[in-house]
Structures are given as C-alpha cells and as structure tokens.
Amino acid sequence: MAQPTTDTWSIFDVIGPVMVGPSSSHTAGACTLGYMAGLLFGHGLQSATLHLHGSFGEVYEGHCTDVAIIGGLLGLLPHDGRIATAYDLAEAAGISITLKPCHLGAEYHPNTVKFDLQGNDKRMVIVGSSLGGGKIAITEIDKIPVRLTGAYSSLVICFDEGQHSLMDFLKFAMEEGLDPVKTETYSYKNRIILDIEIRQWFESAIIEQITSRFDVKWVRYLNHISHYDQS
C-alpha cells in the first residue's frame, strides 16, 4: 500500500479540481479518464462498453461515474455542467453505451474502467484508473501496458516493431522544429507505443504528416490536463 507516487502534484490538484459533484475520484477522475480515452480513440466512436471494476462497479450509480465517463468520452472536462446530460448527448451523437460492472483482478486499482471502444472500422481497448483527488492514469492500450496521466502534453504513436525506430520519429520531430523533452517506450509482443513529451504548441498537420510518411497504427496528440484551468 505504501508506494510513494512518482507523479508530480500541483497545489491546484490538491485545492482542486473545480468540478461538478459529487465525487473527485468517481465523478471528476472518471470524467478525465473518459476524456483521455476519447482522445486516444479519435474520431468516429459508435459504441462504448464500459467495464467498471472494483469500487467503480459497486457504487457508480450514486457517484454518476457512468455519466461522468460518458461526458468525458464526448470531450467534456470535470468542471463542465453539461456532464449531467451525458446520456442524452451520447444518444444525440449516435453512440451506444453498455455498462458492465466487473472484476478485472486484484492487481488493478479499485477505481478502474476498461473501455471497449468501437466505430469507424476500428476497435480500441483502454484501461485506466482514477487514483484519488481527480488524478488518473491510463494503464493499458490494446494490452500494451502504458502510463499516461495527462501530466504533460505528448505525441503518442503506435507502430509495429521493425517498421520504424524511436530515432525515426525523434528525427522527424526535430526536423519539424519540435523539441521533444522526453520519451517513454511501451510494448507488448511486437507492438510499440511511443510517448513523446512535447511542451510546445504545434499544427495538427504534423499528425497527418506522420500518418502519411510512416507506417503507423495510429498517432494522437494528448493535451496536458491541468487542474489550473477552471472554466
């Protein structure tokens, strides 16, 4: 239990987030998990099955955990009052939602959700946990163990081993004038996810360039999630 966290804590994570109630872990954190999963999936979501593990599965109704996750999937952040109408928004967007309380295993944090997201001829299975006080971590993407917390902005690239190397992407980023701060490489079997921290703003055209120049499975830009912002 006593595992000192390596995550950075801003005072705005402690006195914050500014959020719609009733629970920071089961509402605000759940919403942020949905938001991250939505960014990772990208466009064209048609159906989402939410496997709710542990405490999430036990008490989601009272904490509006399901509502918050769905709101996040639709792009809403924890302080957005529209979260309360997430089911209606999902219906209007033509996204079908299925809820399944489950037990993923004791090694998972008690507040964990496994997203099974489908649409646009693609499927992505994402696991993430709400760590308390609104903090979150995405821990698995299509069985690849990762740790994405939204603590910094990053370019996330998924590709198969042998197709490219870390250096290919770093070289490309530098050529485009980007300044990668640090990288993390995650893998499962021959599939690799590269997380490149980039602190500067850049054109979304870079994402399209990567897709056309390299043989990648997918590329996403994950914006830094800050509890500093409150409106």
Binding site: V14, I15, G16, P17, V18, M19, V20, G21, P22, S23, S24, S25, T27, A28, C64, H79, G81, A84, G132, G133, G134
Partner: peptide, 15 residues
C-alpha cells in the same frame, strides 16, 4: 451543493 451535482472545489476530494 456537491450532492446536487453543483460546482465545488475538491479539497482534496469532493467527499
């Protein structure tokens, strides 16, 4: 206010 899904500041949590 929190129980009514109103806006609050988690400090450190909503509960």
């Amino acid at each position: 206010t929190n129980a009514r899904m109103g806006k609050i500041v988690a400090a450190p949590t909503a509960g």
